[in-house]
């Protein structure tokens, strides 16, 4: 993460930590949702019947997606640095693009099951 100010690095650490806290809760709830869907033997249509128009469901998964989009690229920067010795602006740009891709695909999926 060359050329990144100390303040930015400290903030990245903070955001990664905060997003990890949110993700821990989200994963727990998400597992509950999966278990409910699987054990109840719900069909795709039945699942969509429950999710469509459910703003609470949509809001929860939006938070989940945004937390991933914050958390993942910061970790990827570390992996790039420590495993590939790849650092600097090019690594940051790729991680940013990856983050944007995660957010776009995730939010699109949420929109798909809620709308």
């Amino acid at each position: 993460m060359q050329a990144m100010s100390l303040r930015t690095q400290a903030r990245l650490w903070y955001w990664q930590r905060m997003s990890a806290t949110v993700l821990a809760l989200c994963v727990f709830v998400h597992l509950g949702v999966i278990l409910y869907a699987v054990h109840s033997g719900l069909s795709a249509a039945a699942i969509l019947g429950r999710t469509r128009g459910n703003l609470l469901f949509g809001a929860f998964y939006c938070v989940f997606v945004i937390s991933c989009a914050i958390h993942v690229p910061i970790g990827l920067l570390r992996v790039a640095e420590e495993w590939l010795r790849w650092r600097g602006k090019s690594a940051q740009a790729v991680c940013l693009v990856f983050s944007a891709g995660l957010a776009l695909m995730g939010l699109r999926a949420v929109y798909g099951v809620v709308s």
């Binding site: 993460m1 990144m4 100390l6 690095q9 400290a10 990245l12 650490w13 570390r78 640095e81």
Partner: peptide
């Protein structure tokens, strides 16, 4: 704190 912050310091 400036010396130990950052990716070669505590944040790694």
């Amino acid at each position: 704190l400036r010396a130990v912050a950052g990716d070669a310091g505590c944040h790694s």
